[in-house]
């Protein structure tokens, strides 16, 4: 597939997924009907495009502009590593898993500079919180993702999907998917882990953002969620493998399942405190992830 084809494919996938996520999230917020929820993303985007950008006193403009752009780029880079339709359909990179991991950890940088940019206290605290969060879950996140490479004997996502033709890794590595989903929600600062954007910070990193900047940021975060779900289904739920339906449709169905699951968790569970989260990351998730690595390694021997 050409580079242009991959670009079109990733754009379509991320936009479509982001739309579904925003609608699902709106439906679960407890107000409004299905009709308004379906129209919500378009109306909201129109409003934000009309809203002029505000500025603060002596912001770090470059950082403030770069934040959303970087977040969007990282979501796209992560999505490129996942084969959508089948083994030969391109989009398969030799060390794709590491590419994905690197992109997801740089999300920290995007959020940090976006919080730093406006030179305002609440966004800055949001950025600090993101640093505390990602540094706590970065290791378990990388570990559970890389563990899927052990039985597949490859770092290419395509090979990992192929290795699941007999049994999905969600069964082979029962600890993998739950840890992945928790850490993925934290990396996308979503759901119970939306600390950088918490209501106790009046929006945190977005508290000073409006207009196009806010629209880009919101879209980029939704796209990031799609990318994380996409990788989750590829390495744990067998990706494009499945009976009857074509491969790309399986990919989309499985991605949407994880996406809706994350959206639901985000709306039903209360936000975690920062201290509790750091404890949770180091004391609960990290040992569990290590157990996951050791068990998978032992099984692979």
């Amino acid at each position: 597939m050409t580079a242009f084809g991959i670009l079109v494919q990733v754009t379509a996938l991320l936009s479509g997924g982001a739309y579904v996520l925003v609608v699902a999230d709106r439906l679960m917020s407890g107000t409004g009907s299905v009709r308004t929820a379906l129209a919500y993303p378009v109306r909201r985007l129109s409003f934000l495009l009309l809203q002029p950008a505000t500025t603060t006193e002596r912001p770090d403009f470059e950082a403030w502009i770069l934040g959303p752009a970087l977040l969007m780029a990282l979501a796209a880079v992560g999505a490129v590593a996942v084969p959508i339709a089948g083994p030969s359909a391109g989009g398969d990179i030799d060390a794709g898993l590491v590419l994905f991991g690197a992109a997801m950890l740089i999300v920290l940088v995007a959020v940090f500079i976006f919080g730093w940019g406006p030179n305002s206290v609440l966004p800055m605290i949001g950025g600090y919180r993101m640093a505390a969060m990602v540094l706590s879950v970065g290791i378990p996140f990388s570990l559970v993702v890389l563990t899927t490479a052990i039985p597949a004997e490859s770092l290419s996502v395509g090979m990992i999907v192929e290795a699941q033709s007999s049994l999905w890794f969600v069964i082979v590595q029962p600890l993998g998917l739950p840890i992945y989903l928790v850490t993925a929600a934290a990396i996308a600062f979503w759901g119970p882990f939306d600390l950088p954007e918490g209501a106790d910070l009046a929006g945190g990193v977005v508290a000073e953002a409006s207009g196009l900047r806010l629209a880009t940021w919101r879209f980029a975060r939704a796209a990031l969620m799609v990318t994380l779900s996409l990788m989750g289904q590829a390495v744990f739920l067998g990706g494009y493998l499945g009976p009857v339906l074509p491969g790309w449709l399986w990919t989309i169905v499985k991605t949407l399942v994880l996406l809706v699951l994350l959206a639901l968790a985000g709306r039903t569970i209360a936000r975690m405190r920062v201290q509790t989260f750091v404890w949770f990351g180091w004391v609960v998730l990290l040992p569990l992830a290590l157990v996951d690595v050791f068990v998978s390694g032992w099984l692979a021997l």
Binding site: G30, T31, I269, A270
Partner: peptide, 13 residues
């Protein structure tokens, strides 16, 4: 309290 804790759904309820 529920709104600040991020469970708007229950806050609305």
């Amino acid at each position: 309290t529920l709104e600040i804790a991020g469970v708007d759904r229950l806050a609305v309820r």
